[in-house]
Amino acid sequence: MTEFFSAQGLSCIRQDRVLFEQLDLTLNSGELLQIQGKNGAGKSSLLRLLAGLSTPDDGTIYFQGQLIAECLEQYAASLCYIGHQSGIHEQLTAMENIAFWRAAYQLPYVDSMTLLGELGLAGLEDLPCHMLSAGQQRRVSLARLWLTNCPLWILDEPFTALDQSAIQRLQYRFRQHLAQGGAMIVTTHQPLSDGFSCLKTLELSYRW
């Protein structure tokens, strides 16, 4: 059986420093891969490689048994990547930011008001995002996770600046996604709460 997502022998070199080499990972449907490591260990660089944003110095990445370089369109359509930066424009309101990402992912229309209410942003939908707090901006950025139907999520530090209740709600959404057969790769320093039956962890060590 072919794995949903796998990578073999990945190496990444930044400014003459080897961040990691000969890294293997596999991910099946319904699994969550948590990547841990110190600051500067190369977590974000690894996620960018996996998201197809940069090419690895060595190694190959497979999506459903195919090299991602050979099925870029299909891979990109199955992927929801939220990077270190939020992808939120500060001059736009929460509603406008969500409408932008909904169009970009070609998602069906949903009632953004209800969604924002669920995310604890009721009453703030018409404020430009620079007037929201960091945690509220992060919630707006993550709102698209409640809309998307992409099977693979790659999230860089999704819990940054979120409060406990938001973290709980996000983890609940993670479990929903995994139960529906999705897979996800997440970097976080935060220990994930119990209830993730298919949790894998990968520790990147800091190298000189």
């Binding site: 998201a51 197809g52 944003l53 870029l72 369109e73 990109a76 359509a77 992927l79 990547y81 939220i82 990077g83 270190h84 930066q85 939020s86 992808g87 939120i88 424009h89 500060e90 001059q91 169009a103 970009a104 992912y105 070609q106």
Partner: peptide, 18 residues
């Protein structure tokens, strides 16, 4: 400039079709 700083461009590139 702003879209680059906010990561909008990066996520659009990952998304490709948009």
């Amino acid at each position: 400039r702003d879209d680059y700083r906010n990561g909008v461009i990066e996520q659009l590139v990952a998304n490709r079709q948009a």
